[in-house]
Simulated assay, not measured.
Amino acid sequence: MLLDQSWSLVLSAIIGSYLNESTICIFWNDKFEFQLLQGADYASFVGINIQSLKNQQCRDVVDIGLRKKALQEKELPFDDLLLKITISIEVTHCETFVVFDEDIGQFVDAFTKASVYSIWRSLHNKFVFAHVAHELKECCENRFFEGKKETF
């Protein structure tokens, strides 16, 4: 785990300056110590830990059964992450996403489908991908990133 509090400071500054007044979906990663600092101005946030989804240790606040059934009836492929993102978009109108390191590629694949599956769409989606530069994998070669790269 990176015990450096700089992640919290940098991401809180980004949230305060660019992502305020939106619902933020944070994909927690145990390797990064990040906490939302007091005083950040965001409408609400949804926290998702991809590893917990895989281990099925998390509980859903929203009943996902109806959405899951609708996707199955349409024979649309999905997994737990795609379903969680779809529900987060539809129920909370999550349009801002903070994703860390090795979760980036998996998130991009799931978000691309979830944004199509969702019954609600945003024209103002914003993404913050936090990673250690020397550890970045080929996930950023995905078409999703064309013309969207900004480095802080």
Score class of each variant (00 low, 15 high):
residue 2 L to N: 15
residue 2 L to W: 15
residue 4 D to R: 08
residue 8 S to T: 08
residue 9 L to R: 14
residue 11 L to C: 10
residue 12 S to I: 01
residue 13 A to C: 10
residue 15 I to A: 09
residue 16 G to V: 02
residue 18 Y to L: 14
residue 18 Y to C: 13
residue 20 N to T: 06
residue 21 E to K: 14
residue 24 I to D: 01
residue 30 D to N: 13
residue 31 K to R: 12
residue 31 K to Y: 14
residue 31 K to V: 05
residue 34 F to G: 04
residue 36 L to M: 06
residue 39 G to V: 00
residue 41 D to Q: 08
residue 41 D to E: 13
residue 43 A to Y: 14
residue 45 F to T: 02
residue 46 V to I: 12
residue 47 G to H: 06
residue 48 I to V: 15
residue 49 N to W: 03
residue 53 L to Q: 03
residue 54 K to M: 10
residue 54 K to C: 06
residue 56 Q to H: 10
residue 63 D to S: 06
residue 64 I to Y: 10
residue 66 L to G: 12
residue 67 R to I: 09
residue 67 R to D: 05
residue 68 K to N: 07
residue 70 A to D: 12
residue 72 Q to L: 14
residue 73 E to N: 10
residue 77 P to T: 12
residue 78 F to S: 01
residue 79 D to P: 04
residue 87 I to N: 12
residue 87 I to R: 12
residue 91 V to P: 00
residue 94 C to E: 04
residue 95 E to T: 07
residue 96 T to G: 10
residue 99 V to I: 13
residue 102 E to V: 07
residue 103 D to A: 05
residue 104 I to H: 00
residue 106 Q to F: 01
residue 108 V to N: 01
residue 108 V to S: 00
residue 111 F to L: 07
residue 112 T to N: 01
residue 112 T to A: 02
residue 114 A to S: 08
residue 118 S to E: 00
residue 123 L to E: 11
residue 123 L to S: 14
residue 125 N to H: 14
residue 125 N to K: 11
residue 125 N to S: 14
residue 125 N to L: 04
residue 126 K to N: 09
residue 133 A to W: 11
residue 140 C to Y: 14
residue 143 R to D: 12
residue 143 R to Y: 08
residue 147 G to R: 01
residue 147 G to D: 02
residue 148 K to V: 11
residue 151 T to M: 08
residue 152 F to E: 09
